[in-house]
Structure formats: structure tokens, C-alpha cells
Amino acid sequence: MILKSKVIYILLWSALMFGCRQNIELKSTSGKLVLVDSSIAADSAVASVISPFREEIDKQMSRIIGFSEAEQDSYYPESPLSNFVSDIIQERALRYLKANNADTLPMISLMNIKGLRANLPEGEVTVRDIFEIMPFENQIVVLTISGTNIKAFFDYISTTNGEGISGAQLVIKNDKVKSVTINGDVLDVNRNYYLATSDYLANGGDYFSMITNPIQSQLIGCKIREAIIEHIEELNQNNLKVVSNIDGRIKID
């Protein structure tokens, strides 16, 4: 199989290198469906190469990083897991801003609930558990947003029945904003705010178009998944378990 792959590669390379030197006209094509399933025997040569890497990856993924007091799941309008992850994003972003003497504005954080793809289990928490929750390579980004666009941000969240947020309290009534406070203060459309979130959402993912043209955007050099792992490890080093609850940061009136 490896030899065949090399031959195919050489043929393709030759076609790319020399095909442009003459006019080639496609006359016809043909093909057939090949099912890639358990009926195809494993190639022993390939398996022997992959095996050491698979074993090392499995070892790293099975590493216990801490313990959770209870299972955490995610749901609307707020949930233990979405609160937990948005709080971690908030904490990590604030740490970055303080280190750069830039923590000058009120901050809120966002974690889209649909982006949390599994529950955090009760008891032992492994690296694999965090990869299952957050399988994406999303980076934490801090946006400087006008108060007007922050209002539009909360207006949108009200139509989606909530999201994972930190640093704010939102009350929704009839799919509209009834009230918003940020760090205990009423939202002011005449000032700017920091919004810490994923680069996916900052680029307009999940229809968050109102945050795609920020006054400033800063990647802090940390993936959300890495921040979660490191946070749980820090808790464990201090003999603490993961604890997160619903605290009323989003209410449906």
C-alpha cells in the first residue's frame, strides 16, 4: 500500500509538472464508490509506524488534571458549564490585560453554548474530557467595543435565549432586553467596553456580526482549551475541585 501511494504521488507530480506544457483535453471520467469501513484490513506496516504515536497520545489524553465536584452540563439560558468556561475566559483575559497595564475598561466575556460539545464529568477530569468539551482550536481574543455595539450584542443574545457570559447580568423579557448591568453598573452606550471571547465569535461566528468591527482586537496567545486545562490544574494544585453553579447572570422574566 505504501509503494502504491508513492507511485500515485509520482504520477500526480508528473502530471502537474509536465501537464502545462501541452494542451490536454479531458475526454471522459469514471469511478466507483469504495466504502472505507471495518471490512478493509489494516496495513501492518502503517500500523507499526502509527502505534507508538497513538500510545503516546493516548497517555497524554488520559492524564488526570483535576476533579469535579459534580457533572457540569450546558443549556440555555445559562448553565454550570457555560458559566464555568466564560468565567475562565474572563479571568485569563483580565490576567493578560493587567500584565500589560491595559485593564482600563469594564469587561464582559462570551462563550457560545453551542461551542461546548460535551459535559464535564463528575470526579476525575482528564485532558481528553476537555478536548471533548472544546475540540476546536479557538483562541481567546479581547475586543474593545463601543457601548452601542455592546447593546446590540445583548439585544442579539436576548433573541437566542441566552449564552455563556461573565461579568454581566442580563434580564430578558419576551425575547428582548429588560435590563443589563456590567460589573454592577447599568450599560452605558456612550462608553467603551472590553469583550473577551473566541476568535471564532469575534469573526462573526454564530451570527455575532455586531462585534466584527471592534475599535481594537487583541489575541492574548492562549487557546480556550488550554485555559480550561490550566485552570483545573491550578485548582488541583491547591486541593480544590471544580465547582460551578447557576447564579442568575441571565434571567428570563
Rank of each mutant, 00 (worst) to 15 (best):
Y76L: 13
F154T: 04
F154V: 04
I130A: 08
R63F: 12
G66L: 06
T126P: 02
D73K: 13
Q139W: 10
R21L: 12
L16M: 06
E124H: 09
D73R: 11
S38Y: 08
E78Y: 07
A41H: 06
A45H: 12
I113S: 08
M17E: 00
R117P: 05
F67V: 09
L35H: 09
S48L: 09
D43H: 06
N100K: 15
K27F: 09
R54K: 15
F136P: 04
D73H: 08
N100W: 05
A118Y: 10
E91F: 08
V127H: 03
N119Y: 06
W13H: 03
K114L: 12
E132N: 15
L116P: 05
A118G: 02
Q72D: 00
R63N: 15
S30N: 13
A47M: 11
M134C: 09
M107L: 15
A99T: 11
F154Y: 14
N100I: 03
N101W: 02
D129P: 07
V49N: 01
I145K: 06
D87V: 04
I145M: 15
K32T: 13
D87S: 11
R63D: 14
I24N: 11
D73Y: 09
Y156K: 10
Y76C: 01
D87Q: 07
A70Y: 05
S51M: 08
F84T: 03
F53G: 01
Q72P: 00
A70Q: 09
V125P: 02
F153D: 00
V36W: 04
A47H: 01
D155E: 14
N101I: 01
Y96I: 07
S109R: 06
R95E: 15
E25D: 14
E56N: 12
D87A: 10
S28G: 10
I89F: 03
P106N: 10
E122W: 01
I50P: 00
S51Y: 01
A70V: 02
R92N: 13
N149R: 13
A118E: 13
S44V: 11
K59S: 12
T104F: 02
E122V: 10
R117I: 08
G147W: 07
F136H: 13
P106K: 14
I24E: 05
Q22D: 06
K151S: 13
L33P: 00
L97A: 10
I113A: 07
D43G: 03
L81K: 04
T144K: 15
I113V: 12
V85P: 03
I157F: 03
N23K: 15
R92H: 12
V85L: 06
T126H: 03
A118M: 02
I40L: 14
P52M: 01
E124G: 00
T104D: 14
I64D: 05
M134I: 15
S39D: 12
A41K: 13
I130E: 08
K27N: 15
L81Y: 01
E78A: 04
K151P: 01
A15N: 04
T29N: 11
L143D: 11
F53D: 03
S48I: 01
Q60V: 12
S51E: 14
F153W: 08
R117L: 14
K114W: 11
S30K: 14
R95I: 12
I64S: 05
L81C: 07
I150E: 07
D103Q: 11
N138C: 06
F154K: 06
